[in-house]
Amino acid sequence: MRNISKIAAARLTGRGGAEFPTAFKWLAVAKAKLEKFDRPAYIICNATEGEPGVFKDKHILRYFPGEVINGIRIALEELGAEKAYIYVQRKDLNTIKKRLTPFIKKLPIRFFAEDGGYLCGEETTLLEQMEGRRPEPRLRPPFPTEHGLHGCPTLVNNVETFYYISQIVKDEYRHTRFYCLSGAIRNPGVFELPIDLTIAEVLKKTKNIPRCKFFLQVGGGAAGEILLPDETNRPLKGAGAIIVYDRAKTKPQELMTRWIEFFFKSNCGKCAPCREGLYRLREELKKAKPDWLMMRAILETMRDASFCALGKSVYTPMLGLLEKV
């Protein structure tokens, strides 16, 4: 439990985007493991990273493979887990495998490759897919920490989270995170910087202050929030993406269409508001003069009623763009 206390003291939160306190998750798995002592526990490292504008996991796996494996090793030991899986997109499997294998050695770490897509960022969807079912989210409770892979206690953390676990345990954590910068800037890329920097400071430090009139999408390139320049005096939340749009060159309807196409392709089809809502939004956006009022009603319904975060999250960027730009 010593390491869990360290993680708790470092106030590490999940870096997949949901920002759930990591130590809570670990404790929940540890507790479930005590209750279900006859069952194995599993560790899953999620490396699917399916959202536009988010590409930090690949960066971490490329430059710090040893740290990530070390983080997984710590989890295996601390939680007495039987096996760990690294869930990667099928197309990335070979590259990632080559990089990580030298560090895995005798550790019980396996790869799991599928074309899971964006929705597999959601833990229970990922679990469904790993168990060979349709990639769709599960009802919660029960939570994966108690009832995860094959009904066993399961810890799902993201690549970046494992990277920082390694740092925390080695007492090297400096309260940083990875920022993915892209869009209308000169110096795009992945940067590791302190967590509490404001977005404006991140832009400045990475020499990316836009010279055009701009607005931002932060968190992720589909579900991320829309910010105007005067709203950048706060730290970044969510999945670490900062995307800069040139106001003069960005046509809102086109941008919306891009998002909706992305969500439309990514949604699983399980729940009515998301499945049907995205279909109708997409149809509406094909029109020269979309009915914005009706779209707003659909978005509100999707936000309130969708089964999982995918459907709920479409509202934020869309309304941001509608109202601010």
Binding site: A272, P273, E276, G277, Y279, R280, A297, I298, E300, T301, D304, A305
Partner: peptide
């Protein structure tokens, strides 16, 4: 009111299929 609106639109979406 919010629930009413959500149900109304959700049902309209469902009627659409």
């Amino acid at each position: 009111p919010a629930i009413k609106r959500d149900r109304k639109f959700n049902l309209e979406l469902i009627f659409g299929e």
